[in-house]
Design a protein around this nucleic acid. Structure first.
Lengths: 268, 268
DNA sequence: GAGTGGTCTAGACCACCCG
DNA sequence: GGGTGGTCTAGACCACTCG
């Protein structure tokens, strides 16, 4: 019994401190910056996602294939993919394979849209665009998007309606660099969530976002757009969305009418 | 090579459809209700948590010990504990062991309190209790807490202040059954988050919650309590909190002043 | 039946903590 | 130095999908 091969830590493309030489038992400090193998694999897979080697909606190579490619065991790439799945970058489907997540799916639509109807089933709103223009980033926008004040940004203002009832008025700022060529026409003709368009047309996938929410009173303009009396209380949300590498690529300020809807949240 | 023992699926306390008999290869349908071993282990561990065999803050048995107890491999209990840790029921500490999570820790305090200061570091507010009484559950409260209308509930109203500035006014309803003996005195003298008291004194641990958020205008009473003008816009939150077994054990309705604070959320 | 993800095991070794 | 969680491997088998 117990005659397993010495497990030479399978040298490979990736490693920690030392290059190879796993033989002796007491040499080389345990590497001050220790990073597990599966984290390195995860980073490599993430790179392939970011670079577009595997596009949203597509099937990525199987676990065994990736294990061979990276010269590690299947269990290790498995753990890497587990984390990517937990972060919604990838979706596993037993018997079929692992797919790159996409914002073109019913499942993804309510990951960022948290406004739910008080009654009835959630559904996606229709958009009406009020304004789309290129401009220079104001100081506050520049700061949140990690740009320089005065850098080119695209500004979008729209109203979203559920069952023809205007409920959300939103202003968006996007880095001009990243969204070169985004036009009002393209926005209007596009059906489905805006993040789907960003992903398909500009190769920019929203990964996560942070949101700050307040209560405010409706001003005259917004009251008119939302068909509510002036001074109606509204939810005000400020959202910054991030793509790969924690890069901020969208600032979105929304006003939500909460007459027939509420902001839904799960605390875990 | 390749002379591993036949892996008799190690019969055990737990199992799926068939009792044992893992020998033949083609008998017994693959059990219509298949539940992985690690899920069964997870359920068993959860039972021990719920029953109080291991109390909040305490060390639970080591992975190898649990593996022996349940007659499974360490890897299997590991996967079970992984999920419990992901659900915040348990906390792993390398080199020390696995501990039952508790609401008495700085880490846990902001899991349910999402109101953050616009500037400065988050800290926990001071409470001032306005009212504590036993009453019969109104219909809407009964429905949300899964009680019968008229069942005994405890009603609590309090104001919470950050740096002596009143910011939150909250009304809570708790099932009288679960929180027998909860008094105003006990609440007042207790320092720290209320969920800590619930856990220590009543053996009821809050696991998760759902929240619905709206914008409203301050009425006269609430405006006075929060030191804001009447009709100031406020965030209104309705939270239902759950303990083990998805049992609702708290209804909390809060009004938040968002002059100097905001509701913070992460979208993943 | 072949391929993919999902489960389970057994064993080795590593990083971390503490007495 | 011994215990605990954390990583990694290798291999077997299961559940699911699809042609």
């Amino acid at each position: 019994m117990n005659s397993v091969p010495p497990n030479p830590n399978s040298n490979s493309t990736v490693s920690n401190g030392g290059a190879a030489e796993p033989s002796a038992g007491s040499a080389a400090a345990p590497s001050p910056t220790f990073s597990p193998l599966y984290q390195q694999i995860k980073a490599l897979i993430t790179q392939s996602l970011q670079s577009g080697e595997w596009k949203p909606g597509e099937l990525i190579p199987s676990e065994v294939e990736l294990a061979n490619r990276f010269k590690v065991s299947q269990g290790t790439v498995r753990k890497a993919i587990d984390e990517l799945a937990a972060e919604n970058l990838v979706m596993r489907k037993q018997g079929k394979g692992t797919f790159v997540s996409t914002h073109h799916e019913a499942r993804a639509h309510f990951r960022f849209l948290r406004l739910m109807p008080d009654e009835g089933v959630p559904h996606y709103p229709e958009s009406k665009f009020i304004e789309v223009k290129r401009m220079r980033a104001p100081a506050d926008v520049a700061r949140l998007l990690d740009l320089k004040s005065g850098d080119a940004v695209i500004f979008i203002k729209r109203v979203q309606s559920f069952d023809s009832l205007p409920t959300i008025v939103e202003e968006l700022w996007l880095p001009g660099m990243t969204f070169k060529g985004l036009t009002a026409e393209r926005l209007v003709e596009y059906k489905g969530p805006m993040y789907g368009l960003f992903e398909s047309e500009f190769g920019t996938r929203m990964i996560r976002a942070t949101e700050k929410i307040r209560a405010v009173c409706a001003g005259a303009d917004d009251a008119e757009l939302l068909h509510v009396p002036v001074n109606t209380p509204l939810l005000a949300s400020e959202r910054v969305s991030f793509t790969y590498g924690d890069k901020a690529v969208e600032l979105r300020r929304g006003l939500y009418s909460t007459e027939r809807h509420h902001y839904h949240n799960e605390l875990n």
